[in-house]
């Protein structure tokens, strides 16, 4: 199991560095832009826009665009950040079973003395490690860049956001792991996982602007991930943590059960 983890960490290291570099550059751009954005009365500008429009593009109730938490949430953390990391984690988790079958590397791997559970789990562990590392790296970057640009940001907010974001990514990893066990190609896993993540965002946005849908907010994964609220309050909802962890666990366990019964 250890040799798989070491090998997969090595294999994915360069890719993860590229993702981290891209995220850092975007974080820098956003934080560097914030002081000049702050000089305008953006909130007043937003108030003039149709309410539905603002809500749809991440402007939840109480959004303060003039504060770094609101600005980062709307411009970066709500969707761009999630989609980028989802690309990584879905690609990584998707390559374990669906990708292995597609590339036919899984035959030789499974002829080695290792159980299917350990084989898949050791690779999912790598996905979990690197997706958590990307979130942590990004939080560090946000903190250091805010310091450099003399912008106040709460450490407790960053920590609360970090913990929830990691679990949110792990929940998506669980979904990708499940898809990997039932789909026939890695690209399908990536596309469907990204559609689920983005679809959740769109659905929650629709719930925010259509009254009839308001009661269905709980269906959206984004109901458990609100960057602005987390950054501002520094408070993690235990219920959200439990649900995100449950999604991750159920997805992973279902994936392992299916994989163990699957003809390769």
């Amino acid at each position: 199991m250890i040799n798989i983890i070491i090998q997969k960490l090595k294999e994915q290291r360069n890719g993860v560095i590229y993702y981290a570099t891209g995220l850092f550059a975007y974080t820098w751009l956003m934080i560097g832009l914030f002081p000049s954005m702050q000089s305008f009365d953006i909130d007043a500008y937003l108030k003039q826009m149709p309410e539905e429009f603002v809500k749809f593009f991440g402007g939840a109730e109480g959004l303060q665009y003039s504060k770094i938490e609101g600005f980062l949430s709307m411009e970066y953390l709500s969707i761009f950040f999630v989609v980028i990391i989802t690309f990584y984690l879905a690609s990584s988790a998707g390559s374990v079973i669906a990708g292995g079958i597609e590339k036919r590397t899984i035959d030789f791997d499974l002829s080695q003395p290792i159980s299917r559970t350990k084989y898949a789990l050791s690779q999912f562990v790598v996905t979990l490690k690197y997706s958590a590392a990307l979130v942590i790296f990004n939080i560090l970057a946000m903190y250091l860049l805010c310091l450099a640009y003399d912008i106040d940001i709460k450490i407790s907010g960053l920590l609360a956001f970090g913990l929830t974001a990691i679990l949110f990514m792990w929940a998506l990893t669980g979904i990708a792991a499940f898809l990997s066990s039932v789909m026939k190609s890695r690209i399908s896993v990536v596309l469907i996982t990204v559609v689920i993540a983005f679809g959740s965002y769109v659905f929650l946005s629709l719930c925010n602007i259509i009254d009839k849908l308001a009661d269905f907010k709980f269906i959206s994964l984004y109901n458990l991930y609100n960057p602005q609220k987390l950054l501002e309050s520094g408070h993690v909802e235990i219920k959200d943590v439990v649900i995100l962890f449950a999604i991750f666990s159920i997805g992973t366990i279902a994936s392992l059960i299916i994989f163990n019964k699957k003809d390769i």
Partner: peptide
């Protein structure tokens, strides 16, 4: 593949 337990 049966002997290698790749298929059931």
């Amino acid at each position: 593949r049966l002997l290698l337990d790749l298929i059931m």
